[in-house]
């Protein structure tokens, strides 16, 4: 009873803290009155997601180290699909006359229009994480530079590492992210390319919606239908954790390697233990920073911004041991 009481107190305290968090964002307001410093807006996707949280924390740390150069106005949306709210966030940032907007768009098409308006208002817009749709940008005659990793390349790296442990012709399965997400599609294509090149047989490719539990159910059903599957390639780590749990309960974890993507902390632990073969890091803590640095560079040199590729690296037990 005492514990529950304590817990409810913790919850209440938590609510108060988040409430204060809102207030803590207020330095942006005072910053509106300080014309000497550059003001950069970071518009994120879901801050409830570990990946984006790491990105935002990286950006805050960078700002703290470069407090003399710029002020950071960071905000994110409640869940990754709340496109409308993100459009409003960009509009608010425009109204606050920021110098640059660094954005991880929730939708690679729907956000183009508002970002174009920001550009027309003289704001530097840098696209991070999820790349804007080339076709749409061409149609609208706009160019928004993308600073970020090549997801396809990362997936291919992991796929090649996996393939070296398999025999050509081995049946493998891919667990995909949300079907409409650009990075999910890129990762699937990267996995497919690596598997085809090594002569593997992709017997199934199913959607796991980025979720652990969904992937668990999909993998359980797949190992029943294709008992000879030799490996699972998962488009993110949450799904890889679900796959590992499913294989463990089927008693098949030893023989069937799993790879993931994102290098979240729980997945890195599993790589260390040897239960997950590999994952891919795109340096989440640096992703937003790369975008901010690009924005600062453009603001300083007044150059036309170009696309810039940021590094992706394989995370394996050997790499972690060294």
């Amino acid at each position: 009873m005492k514990k529950t009481l304590l817990l409810s107190l913790v919850m209440v305290a938590g609510i108060i803290v988040t409430g204060c968090g809102k207030q803590a964002a207020a330095p942006g307001e005072t910053a509106d009155k300080a014309p000497d410093k550059l003001r950069i807006a970071l518009v994120m996707k879901s801050l409830a997601n570990e990946f984006f949280l790491t990105m935002e924390q990286g950006a805050r740390a960078h700002q703290a180290a470069h407090a003399d150069q710029y002020v950071l106005l960071a905000d994110g949306i409640k869940d990754e699909l709340d496109v409308n709210r993100q459009i409003q966030l960009v509009e608010q940032m425009m109204a606050r006359h920021v110098d640059a907007i660094v954005i991880a768009p929730a939708d690679s098409k729907a956000l183009v229009q508002v970002c174009q308006r920001a550009q027309e208002a003289g704001i530097i817009v840098i696209n991070i994480d999820n790349k804007f749709d080339d076709e749409i940008m061409k149609q609208r005659g706009v160019h928004i530079p993308f600073v970020g990793p090549d997801n396809r390349k990362g997936a291919r790296l992991a796929g090649e590492y996996l393939a070296a442990r398999l025999q050509p012709g081995d049946p493998v399965a891919i667990i995909e992210g949300v079907p409409s997400a650009f990075n999910g599609i890129e990762r699937r294509l990267g996995f497919e390319a690596a598997m085809k090149e090594a002569g593997m047989n992709i017997v199934a490719s199913q959607v796991g919606d980025w979720e652990m539990d969904k992937a668990h159910r999909v993998v359980s059903a797949l190992i029943t239908e294709h008992p000879d599957i030799k490996a699972f390639l998962c488009a993110n780590d949450s799904m890889a954790l679900g796959a590992v749990a499913a294989l463990r309960s089927a008693g098949k974890l030893q023989g069937i390697p799993v790879i993931g993507f994102d290098a979240i902390s729980a997945a890195v632990d599993l790589v260390k233990k040897g239960e997950l073969l590999a994952t891919v890091t795109q340096h989440a803590d640096r992703l937003a920073v790369f975008g901010i640095e690009a924005a600062l560079e453009v603001l300083k040199t007044k150059a036309t911004p170009e696309d810039m590729e940021t590094p992706v690296e394989l995370v394996t037990a050997e790499a972690l041991a060294s």
């Binding site: 919850m11 938590g14 803290v17 409830a48 570990e50 954790l241 979240i264 902390s265 729980a266 599993l270």
Partner: peptide
């Protein structure tokens, strides 16, 4: 409760 879950875990999957 969803907010509480994010607070309690720091938005990270606890292995």
């Amino acid at each position: 409760a969803r907010g509480g879950a994010y607070l309690v875990t720091g938005s990270k999957t606890q292995y």
